[in-house]
Design a protein around this nucleic acid. Structure first.
Lengths: 213, 213
DNA sequence: CGCGAGAATATGGTATACGCAACTAGCGGG
DNA sequence: CCCGCTAGTTGCGTATACCATATTCTCGCG
């Protein structure tokens, strides 16, 4: 199915990204290239490629001759990211719902199954699966749109992971996922868009509630 | 002013990007890492970092163990990119108009002057200046928004450069730039948004006319 | 107590080597 | 005659070693 062979750069990218998203590398910390490379057992080329990609993702910032620093997270940025998601993602998914092929339907169904399975486990990484599901809804609509939405999801993941994961996702989100996928597979663009707006706003509301405490 | 010290990776990135945008490296051509590195007089690390960034920009595509290929341009993609620009850029500029500081005003004014100056020269690179001006209007609004819009501009630049540059930009675009900047500096968000929609649609219309011939 | 010169550190970059995947070409068999 | 296998070749991905330079730290001196 998906690409099995991934380069070391790809794997390094994902490992470091996870560290940032989970807060294992907290905002403001400088990235020590030698130590991370040694720790992961890779050399500078794949490591630097990974860092370069993370900078474009907005998770790192580079200062010439001083290296990379983990970009701070802020409530302002969270608001910006969610506003952009609301502007792009529902419409993109609605558009994709019309264009999706049977294989796309199968992929989305698989993604949701994987997510639901992971929701059961207490230590499961359901946030990654959640992103995969959301992306499956958007991808058939267009390559560029998909890339932009994915980037926003990566950024929003920081906030969701930090503030919402500890409490476990509520049942509402699961129910909504099912409804969204059903409308999506039926090609019902308007319903997909409406449900997704609601769904993202729901996540945002949960987030704001946590942030305000 | 802008950062003076730029890494070799940055410079390599810009050189290769320009080659792709101008069509010097046409879609479908494989990127021969050794030859390009030799030609530019850089080693693999900066070259590969540049290619990695260009892949995220959507200008290259990598196939593991087979290297990078210049991504094809298509009318479909052009339509997608312009639809996204219309969805994001006018609102972003309108938002930025409200937030912009006096320094931001000065930067935008400078960017427009630079653009107009370049418009006079027949061989001038006014497309790069055009992007800089558009970005100056958006940047004060938010970091993430700015990055997304910039990415869309880079992609749209391919089509503008190939299909519109040979004919020189018309007078209308110049007049519109002035009007947009005036409204922007006045903080008149609604007008900025309306004018920018019109402006982008105008470019798109020119493009479609060229593509249909 | 402040400051400046040198030491220590880390980044950015080069050169080189090597394994391995993927393309190519030629050879042999059905 | 064509197909499939095999050997050679190309070029990517990665590692290692090394250097130059910019930054940071330290420590002694005024």
């Amino acid at each position: 199915m998906s690409i099995v062979v991934r380069t070391l750069s790809d794997q390094t990218y994902e490992i470091v990204r996870r560290r940032i998203l989970t807060g294992a590398m907290s905002p403001g910390t400088a990235v020590r290239q030698d130590s991370i490379a040694g720790e992961l057992g890779v050399s500078k080329i794949p490591l630097r490629e990974a860092l370069s990609r993370l900078e474009q993702d907005g998770l790192l910032q580079s200062y010439p001759n001083r290296g990379y620093v983990v970009r701070p997270a802020s409530t302002d940025e969270a608001a910006e990211v969610f506003a952009l998601r609301l502007k792009l993602e529902p419409a993109a998914a609605a558009d994709a719902a019309v264009k999706a092929s049977p294989e796309d339907h199968a992929l989305a169904e698989t993604a949701l199954s994987a997510l639901e399975e992971e929701m059961g486990k207490p230590e499961g990484d359901h946030i990654t699966r959640n992103r995969a599901f959301h992306m499956a809804l958007v991808r058939p609509g267009g390559h560029v749109t998909g890339q932009l939405v994915e980037r926003l999801q990566i950024l929003s993941e920081r906030y969701v992971r930090i503030h919402l994961e500890p409490f476990g996702r509520n049942e509402r989100a699961s129910r909504e996922h099912r409804e969204i996928l059903d409308a999506w597979k039926a090609g019902d663009a308007a319903t997909v868009e409406a449900l997704l707006v609601e769904h993202i706003q729901g996540t945002l509301a949960d987030l704001e509630q946590q942030l305000s405490t």
